[in-house]
Design a protein around this nucleic acid. Structure first.
Lengths: 215, 215
DNA sequence: CGTCTATTTGAATGTACTCAAAAGCGGTGG
DNA sequence: CCACCGCTTTTGAGTACATTCAAATAGACG
């Protein structure tokens, strides 16, 4: 399994010498997860950051009545983790599951800490990624507070145009915060109203990267 | 105006030499904002991080129909900014307003960048703060998706016990994502049901710092 | 095919919202 | 000290957006 996708991602933010790249890559562990396989489950401690080399991950929680709530998608080229658990090394609440056969690089928490010391540029890299994630997360909060389900879907469509055809729509429903039944009824309405696509109404603000999952 | 609150906050995360503290403080600008005064308004570019030395700030957006949506509170000892605008240096959508007479330290964006180079420990400091903010923001997202308004208020009460008595409840309503009218009706219900406080039902996960606003 | 999962549809329900108006509360000035 | 003004909170009636539950339909994969 090669590191080209990951090194490309790094080079979008910082410049590493070949030696530094080498040093970084020595800490990576490859892993394959079959469709529906889990990288992490509720109650476990998240000991790695996951970089998706190929495939799609999703991170979700279960509420007390068994309902799934999708916190994040991570397509190829994105990082994923249970950030609460990763940072605190306490048991987390996320499930991280492969939605298709997926290949990831594991970066152990401890290696990440060490790399911050060995190669300070990596601290910058992750700081910037986390900043972008935070902005995206706050934007999503605002959207959930101030926009209708239709508008939230329109945002989703612009943000993840590829995912729409690749994942079952019940997961998209969960991400935007509605039930699959209601989501299906929204779609039926668009079709009836002749829109072959979705409300075009846009916010002024463009498409933001989402973060610790981040493109 | 003194820097003790801010330096104390720094020392919770990193150790600075007296010289480094001095260097850091040279970049700070003091500012006082009267109650209802603004540090930032929609459409402006956020050129500083704000550290609340005394008082309380709130950050909110307006939707197309004029409704306010409260993204964050920042009591004394917390940082505040329009992070999208601060990071991208594009016009933002947040209003940042003082809820009481407030004193802040301004850290100019450019100074912050320079300080990352001069004192790499500060990059760590802000990385950690942003990480905590991100975790808190994601937790709030999950709460908005999976919990009722009552449960969200119970969380709020544990997270910001002091704020409850200090800010008008319409702002708390906005933070947890309900109208002031509905919030008032919830309170009436608790009283009628004999609970002088609020649902005690807890999540397993404790009280998390919120981040770029962060205690 | 048969099985499993995903999607659609419908009816009844609920949670939270809108709008309007009244009541409460706090400060300021006459 | 009281009256008034602005802002916040409460209350009520009607409504809307979204949910739940149940059952039928459609797809995907072995």
């Amino acid at each position: 399994m090669d590191t080209s996708v990951l090194l490309q991602h790094l080079s979008d933010y910082i410049e590493l010498t070949p030696q530094e790249q080498e040093h970084f890559c020595q800490h990576l562990l490859p892993k394959k997860v079959a469709k529906r396989g889990f990288l992490l489950q509720t109650g476990q401690i998240c000991r790695h950051s996951f970089f998706v080399h190929q495939g799609i991950l999703r991170g979700y929680t279960l509420d007390q009545s068994g309902g799934e709530h999708l916190l994040s998608f991570a397509p190829a080229g994105w990082w994923m983790a249970d950030l609460y658990s990763l940072f605190s090394q306490q048991p987390g609440q996320l499930f991280i599951q492969a939605m298709v056969d997926t290949e990831v690089w594991l970066l152990p928490k401890q290696a990440q800490e060490q790399l911050y010391l060995d190669i300070p540029k990596l601290e910058r890299y992750f700081r910037i990624l986390v900043e972008k994630s935070l902005v995206a997360s706050q934007q999503r909060l605002i959207d959930n507070l101030s926009r209708t389900a239709e508008e939230r879907y329109a945002q989703f469509e612009r943000r993840f145009p590829d995912l729409i055809s690749q994942v079952p729509q019940k997961y998209i429903a969960s991400y935007i915060g509605v039930t699959p039944e209601f989501f299906s009824k929204m779609r039926a309405n668009w079709l009836k109203r002749g829109n072959n696509s979705v409300p075009k109404k846009l916010s002024s603000q463009g498409c933001l990267p989402e973060a610790f999952n981040f493109p």
